[in-house]
């Protein structure tokens, strides 16, 4: 007997809306969200407060003074707000996603929910988008607080282009959060135990945050010739180092942020004297040029998010629902 094609009928997004709304509401009202917000405010407020203190004493002309709130690292506390975000965002995202699927297993709700007319696609995507929306709300709130504090304490309104750059920075931050959210979702699909899943996600984050920069530079040194004879050789070595470092989403995020918030940034590698011809040192790039500069980083973050989510999706489709 010929087997009928196993093409399934109905949209995979049936029921996506209710799942998304439930996840979003659950996150916003959960105690965990309170803890995460507290964490964000404590770790975000100190750099911002001290950089504002320092910026109030600045007297020289700076047309991007407002953006310096995000990037300046005061002497008293050598952490800029952006650097703080670089590790706050992964922790928030992991906190939101590490038990997304396995907690449904453990509470034995998964088979009951999946016996309603939805596909697994809608469940997983709804959970991801619910987490991402929560992350976006939290980051937007933080961003508005920083802008408001800047307005109050600097007594100087931001220019339109500064707001635009700030908004792009916010989008980059959400994309960066999306990568880690997808990663924690992946672990929550793989491991039935929520503790194991959280541990693996945090371990991966620590690996990229602490170890990977060292490993990348060790590999680069290993591949470098013993003596560098020309600028081309030096650039090739530097390029290798950059490529390796960019495997870490944190590097991509930092580069995107530097390009957006420091308008003077022209490249992330060294420039040859020939390339420097006609450059006015310290002159800012227009926004569209900055966006072109960081476009690969942004697409890299989004691509990473999609690849990791796809992996979680494939594994989830094959999983048995029985507990």
């Amino acid at each position: 007997m010929p087997r009928k094609p196993t093409q399934r009928e109905g949209s995979p997004f049936t029921g996506l809306g209710p799942v998304f709304m439930k996840e979003f509401a659950d996150h916003l009202s959960s105690a965990r969200m309170m803890v995460l917000m507290l964490f964000v405010i404590v770790f975000g407020a100190f750099p911002v407060a001290s950089s504002l203190q320092q910026l109030r004493t600045v007297t020289e002309q700076d047309s991007y003074l407002f953006l310096r709130i995000f990037t300046s690292a005061p002497e008293s506390l050598p952490i800029s707000f952006v650097f703080a975000l670089n590790f706050i965002i992964p922790i928030m995202a992991i906190g939101l996603g590490f038990d997304a699927v396995n907690s449904e297993f453990n509470r034995r709700t998964l088979s009951r929910v999946l016996s309603q007319p939805i596909y697994r696609d809608a469940l997983l995507l709804g959970k991801f988008l619910g987490g991402l929306a929560t992350l976006a709300v939290a980051l937007a709130a933080l961003w508005l607080i920083v802008f408001g504090a800047g307005l109050l304490l600097l007594g100087l309104p931001p220019r339109g282009v500064e707001v635009a750059r700030g908004a792009c920075f916010l989008l980059a931050a959400i994309a960066y959060g999306g990568v880690w959210l997808a990663a924690s979702l992946l672990f929550s699909v793989i491991f039935r135990s929520t503790a194991t899943s959280a541990l693996c996600a945090l371990g991966l984050w620590l690996f990229f945050f602490l170890l990977w920069p060292m490993i990348a530079s060790a590999i680069t040194i290993g591949f470098a010739p013993s003596q560098i004879h020309s600028a081309e050789e030096y650039l090739a070595v530097e390029q290798l180092g950059l490529v390796l470092a960019r495997f870490s989403p944190g590097t991509l995020f930092s580069e995107a942020v530097v390009g957006l918030l420091n308008p003077e940034t022209r490249t992330f590698a060294s420039m040859l004297p020939a390339q420097m011809r006609g450059v006015i040192p310290g002159a800012p790039l227009p926004l569209d040029q900055s966006l072109i500069l960081i476009w690969p980083q942004i697409t890299g973050l989004i691509a990473g998010m999609i690849v990791v989510f796809a992996a979680a999706y494939v594994i989830f489709q094959r999983e048995e629902v029985r507990a």
Binding site: E9, R108, R112
Partner: peptide
């Protein structure tokens, strides 16, 4: 197999 949504709309399941 092919029309799970139609089936799940009409069948109640208590795991």
């Amino acid at each position: 197999v092919r029309q799970p949504l139609q089936v799940k709309r009409r069948v109640g399941y208590l795991p």
